[in-house]
């Protein structure tokens, strides 16, 4: 696996980001970079603001201070139009899949294709079938989200997130609600997609097996001090971090030195 010290300009730069709800500051002074080909893990305990950070990165929430850049383009200051154009190059996989419940799986995947490309309806259906096949759901084109299991919904959500061949894929809690085997298969699928499509992955999770198996770089958000207290490849942090909170978390609470 490639290490954090990747050459070249970062794909995402976050500069002094502060997130707050009204007067309540959730996290302050977050500064980090994500490089091309990374599987970047945002980790931390429950309620520390991991998912909120992701919602900031995709523009669902506005930073209280600081800015977010994609390449050299300022996402925070961009107009709605520029922002929408940038968003189209991202894929987002939400915790429960967030499939549109009134549409079949094929329609879910076809919607972004129909809106943002000039493909014919037949081609769109074919592309949707291919995307579903990639996540192991061929034959489920005409199923509604309510007809399939939670794990399948998640994979279908991944297929939809990959519909427009995004160059950055955001994933919120990939293994939440999945059994260990499905969760591992999803991890493998994520690595596969990264390798074959050159997608950079930003993943919010606290599942240690996933973090160590596929994470190439990471930051650790702390709920107590309300800022990031460590960054680097997860395995390195586990063994060599000088912060006891981070080491304890990554060693599952076991005292380690």
């Amino acid at each position: 696996m490639t290490s954090a010290s990747n050459n070249g300009a970062p794909i995402i730069s976050v500069e002094n980001l502060t997130m707050s709800f009204g007067d309540f500051v959730l996290q302050r002074d977050l500064t980090f970079e994500v490089h091309a080909g990374d599987i970047f893990v945002v980790m931390g305990g429950s309620g520390c603001g991991k998912s909120t950070l992701m919602r900031h990165l995709v523009g669902l929430l506005e930073p209280a201070a600081g800015r977010i850049l994609y390449g050299d383009r300022d996402f925070t200051a961009a107009s709605t139009k520029d922002r929408d154009a940038m968003l189209r190059r991202f894929g987002v996989l939400y915790q429960g899949g967030a499939l549109w419940s009134s549409m079949t799986l094929a329609e879910n995947i076809g919607l972004p294709l129909g809106e943002f490309t000039d493909l014919s309806p037949e081609t769109i259906r074919e592309v949707a079938a291919v995307k579903l096949a990639l996540v192991g759901l061929s034959g489920f084109e005409d199923y509604y989200p309510s007809d399939i299991s939670g794990g399948m919904r998640k994979r279908a959500g991944l297929a939809r997130a990959m519909a427009l061949d995004p160059y950055i894929l955001f994933i919120d809690e990939p293994s939440a609600g999945l059994d260990p085997i499905s969760s591992r298969l999803l991890d493998e699928l994520i690595v596969e997609l990264r390798d074959s499509l050159n997608t950079t992955i930003v993943m919010v999770t606290h599942e240690l097996p996933s973090i160590f198996a596929i994470g190439t770089n990471s930051i650790f958000l702390d709920a107590e001090s309300r800022t990031m207290i460590a960054s680097g490849p997860p395995t390195e942090l586990r063994d060599h971090s000088d912060n006891p909170t981070v080491r304890r978390f990554l060693n599952r609470g076991a005292a380690h030195g």
């Binding site: 919602r55 669902l60 154009a85 968003l87 189209r88 915790q95 429960g96 549109w100 809106e115």
Partner: peptide, 17 residues
């Protein structure tokens, strides 16, 4: 409201729709 609970509305927004 249900679409909001399921993050379906967020999914539209982050797709630029």
């Amino acid at each position: 409201g249900t679409m909001k609970v399921n993050e379906e509305i967020d999914a539209l927004a982050t797709m630029g729709i």
